[in-house]
Nucleic acid binder design. Structure first.
Lengths: 119, 119
DNA sequence: CTGTAAATTTACGTGAACGTCAAATCCGGG
DNA sequence: CCCGGATTTGACGTTCACGTAAATTTACAG
């Protein structure tokens, strides 16, 4: 369904990212599990480690009854947001550089083509 | 200087990302090397593998004399750009979700505080 | 109940990206 | 030239995120 092997799902369970129900010995992945799997895979695609992803998932399923706990979750969420903003900035920096490089190459290509026309 | 161990630099050299000069047996890291090191580290921070980073570095130091080669480099650069744009989009998606979550938590915190005031 | 296909468990293997440690080598100062 | 500290060179170890193969166990049609 998500192009993921059973081994991977069991590993995610092993490290605490998933807790599928059991019907006897078989694992039952609920909608909640499927959502979490998608979040995990997206996190992996952008290079987060499984512990980092775990931090983010904890933000989601935390049901903080205590005000101090709630403040704590908010603080951790803000830290994560700052990290992500930083990462976006780094990606945009690389993007800018690649665009510059692209323009340079494009110009030298244009020159070479013009030179060829004149010959 | 960049908070990186000698072992790491030698490993990057081993896999072809760096080619520092030698004064006798000692490695001499030039400005060019230092720039490359920064690019490598930035790539690592945002989760690129060393082979992926190698691809990008090749784009920089390619000096394509042949027009076909130049077109090829341009094409590879565009592919990389597309990947990076995709990654930025995924990060922004996560960012949006975290912001939503943050707002929800903030609101329940506000309610709890209001409830406490009234008691 | 029984065979068998599927799911689980257990355990070892793997590639990437370094860490770590010892041995050898180099290199500048006296 | 000699020596002590720095650098280099293997070589093996480690962690993460799974892959893989074998042995069990389970589930279910007939």
């Amino acid at each position: 369904m998500f192009d993921v092997t059973p081994r991977t799902l069991r590993y995610y369970e092993e490290v605490g990212l998933l807790q599928p129900e059991r019907r006897g010995a078989q694992r039952l992945y609920t909608d909640r599990d499927r959502v979490r799997i998608q979040l995990i895979l997206r996190g992996r695609r952008i290079g987060f480690s499984l512990p980092e992803i775990a931090e983010m998932l904890e933000l989601y399923d935390a049901d903080p009854t205590e005000i101090t706990q709630l403040r704590d979750v908010l603080r951790r969420g803000d830290r994560k947001l700052a990290e992500i903003d930083q990462q976006i900035r780094e990606l945009q920096a690389i993007r800018e550089e690649l665009l510059e490089l692209r323009d340079r190459l494009q110009r030298t290509l244009d020159e070479k083509l013009k030179g060829r026309d004149l010959s």
